[in-house]
Simulated scan of single mutants.
Amino acid sequence: MKNKIYPLKFEPIYQYRIWGGRKLEHLLSKPLPKDDPIGEAWILSDRKDHASEVSEGELKGTTITKLMEDYRYEIMGKMGDHFERFPLLLKFLDCNEVLSVQVHPSDDQKEYIPKGDTGKTEAWIVMETSDNSRIYAGLKKGTTKENLLDSIHNKSVSDHLHSFVPKKGDAVFIHSGTVHTLSGAVVFEVQENSDTTFRLYDWDRTDIKTGKPRELQVDKAMACIDFDQVDIGPITPVKSEIIKNAEKLFDNEHFKLWRIKSESEFQAGLKDEPTILICIEGKGSMNYMDTEYTIDKGEVMLLPAIIGQLELKPQEKITLLQIAIPEKK
């Protein structure tokens, strides 16, 4: 007999990164591995090498991969026919130092994507900034393949990158094909379920663990760059007409995302479709089948389609990110 499905929380998966730091321990309750710079916490991941595990309840220890095998239609509802794997990957990033200058392929660039994988469109929401915070998003107008290649050789790549100083709460959309990097910030990231990244430039540094520079993929990166993606800044939030006390930050073919700030009870989730909730400030609780489910700062919760909407009661004030998956056309 199958376990019954319920609101699902997951254990974060910490990732060593050369550019990481230690700030994620203030955001998440799970202790960081000792000493290493931790750049990423994967909070919902259906990847073969890093599959998220349920943290509470009867299904504790079960991976999202196994859940998608056993409960795909309960989780995905009417989208169950379209997705064998969970289609999004969610992370917190601690960009203590600058990331490599990089680009991701689009879904239709199949020759650059591992079999069974997708391209990678992503978006960031800035959680914390510091004195050296900077987001590089898109090229400067007039950048060509030729002068960008020249800049790699003469170490002046940043001269061709559009950049700005972010502030807390900024939301930035990074379409596949966009050259990008960031530094000095903690961000939440939502992206397609892909781990395909091509490094264009890595600031001539060495990895402290290997003593060697990290590998670049200049030819593949160049092939995937959309030179029309220029001068990208923070998006302008739009007040939601369907969710109380919410603003819509992103709405594209891969994900929709709302930011909800509320001191009073509200309906979380959407009818007949899966919804992901990420608490970024405060805490709250929901009742489902006579059981109380809490969500605290730094936690992610998946509401399966079969559950639909639940009343969320904040303890004082809560700030919640709510993510939906658009139907495939």
Rank of each mutant, 00 (worst) to 15 (best):
41 A>F: 09
86 F>M: 14
78 K>Q: 03
50 H>V: 05
47 R>Q: 13
61 G>P: 09
57 G>I: 15
38 I>Q: 01
67 L>C: 11
54 V>N: 06
60 K>I: 14
88 L>E: 01
81 D>A: 01
85 R>A: 12
57 G>L: 08
39 G>T: 10
84 E>P: 09
76 M>E: 02
46 D>F: 05
75 I>T: 06
52 S>L: 01
40 E>Q: 15
52 S>H: 04
88 L>N: 05
65 T>K: 15
76 M>Y: 03
88 L>K: 07
64 I>A: 04
60 K>D: 05
39 G>C: 04
38 I>R: 03
44 L>R: 01
60 K>H: 07
82 H>T: 14
65 T>F: 04
63 T>D: 13
90 L>N: 03
42 W>P: 02
48 K>F: 03
53 E>M: 13
79 M>D: 07
63 T>P: 10
41 A>T: 11
77 G>I: 08
54 V>F: 03
58 E>N: 12
75 I>D: 06
46 D>P: 02
59 L>Y: 00
54 V>L: 07
86 F>L: 10
74 E>A: 06
38 I>P: 01
74 E>W: 02
75 I>R: 01
66 K>A: 07
89 L>D: 13
65 T>V: 13
42 W>V: 01
72 R>Q: 11
68 M>N: 10
63 T>F: 01
65 T>E: 13
43 I>D: 08
81 D>R: 05
79 M>C: 00
64 I>R: 12
56 E>Q: 13
41 A>Y: 06
49 D>C: 11
63 T>A: 11
68 M>L: 14
91 K>T: 05
89 L>Y: 07
44 L>A: 04
53 E>F: 07
66 K>T: 15
38 I>L: 09
52 S>R: 01
48 K>C: 00
55 S>P: 13
62 T>I: 14
55 S>E: 13
83 F>E: 04
50 H>E: 12
67 L>T: 06
78 K>T: 01
57 G>A: 14
48 K>L: 10
55 S>L: 15
38 I>H: 01
41 A>D: 11
43 I>R: 07
74 E>N: 05
53 E>Y: 04
85 R>D: 15
54 V>P: 00
57 G>H: 12
46 D>Q: 11
83 F>V: 11
52 S>C: 05
39 G>L: 03
87 P>S: 12
86 F>R: 09
44 L>F: 09
54 V>S: 10
43 I>M: 02
55 S>A: 15
41 A>K: 04
68 M>T: 09
62 T>Q: 05
50 H>M: 13
59 L>Q: 01
48 K>T: 08
76 M>A: 10
84 E>Y: 12
43 I>P: 02
